[in-house]
């Protein structure tokens, strides 16, 4: 082991206190220096949350580690994701996709604000949530009013709407799926589908 000059290395960092107390327990100067050089464990002071891998339907249990606690109303920044060793199916293991989950959460191509691309334009522009949602509601209302079919040619009540379609997700929760179902079905949309077919 290469001796390290403890004095030169520590220079008053928080680790100094730890190193000093190690010395008090009888560690040699070199050992204390090595201990002090070890980066503090990066999951110290993180909140742990149980979650499920977002990819395939094996549904491996995962633990999400974050700085900050959402349950206390704090902003929580995810620093690490690993397999849940208590989970009966995966028992802590993850595949190459699951092992890289943190990087999909932190992807540079995550969307962070609503955007609009206007007809003919070659770019997205920011738009407020309110404007985007009002635009959508207006477009739905106008298209539905113009194209809703109350009765078919035989005069039978059919109450369907065929000029708007909705493709639902495949990795949202049941609760989101249910809210989506209620909203979409109540409008009479029939072109309603999800990833199950592909």
């Amino acid at each position: 082991m290469t001796p390290i000059s403890r004095r030169g290395f520590l220079a008053g960092s928080a680790a100094a206190a730890a190193a000093t107390s190690l010395e008090a327990f009888g560690f040699s100067e070199a050992e204390a220096a090595v201990a002090a050089a070890v980066k503090p464990f990066h999951l110290t002071n993180t909140t742990e949350t149980r979650n499920t891998c977002t990819y395939c339907s094996v549904a491996c249990g995962i633990i999400v580690y974050a700085k900050g606690d959402r349950r206390k109303g704090e902003k929580a920044d995810i620093v690490h994701i690993e397999g849940d060793a208590d989970h009966p199916t995966n028992r802590g293991t993850l595949c190459p996709k699951g092992a890289a989950l943190r990087d999909i959460v932190k992807s540079e191509t995550r969307l962070t604000q609503p955007m609009v691309r206007r007809p003919g334009s070659d770019r997205f522009e920011p738009i407020s949530w309110d404007s985007a949602l009002d635009k959508i509601a207006r477009a739905l209302k106008d298209d539905r009013d113009a194209n809703f079919i109350e009765k078919n040619e035989a005069g039978i009540t059919v109450n369907r709407w065929l000029t708007t379609g909705f493709l639902a997700a495949s990795a949202t929760t049941n609760e989101t799926a249910y809210a989506t179902y209620k909203v979409v079905r109540s409008t009479g949309i029939l072109a309603f589908d999800n990833q199950a077919r592909v």
Binding site: T52, R110, M115, V116, F124, A132, K135, A171, E175
Partner: peptide
């Protein structure tokens, strides 16, 4: 075509149930 692109949360940021195979 007018396109509206709305940013959503991902699995690590929401709550609820998922059904596995």
């Amino acid at each position: 075509t007018e396109v509206l692109q709305l940013p959503t949360t991902c699995f690590a940021e929401d709550e609820g149930s998922l059904v596995n195979s």
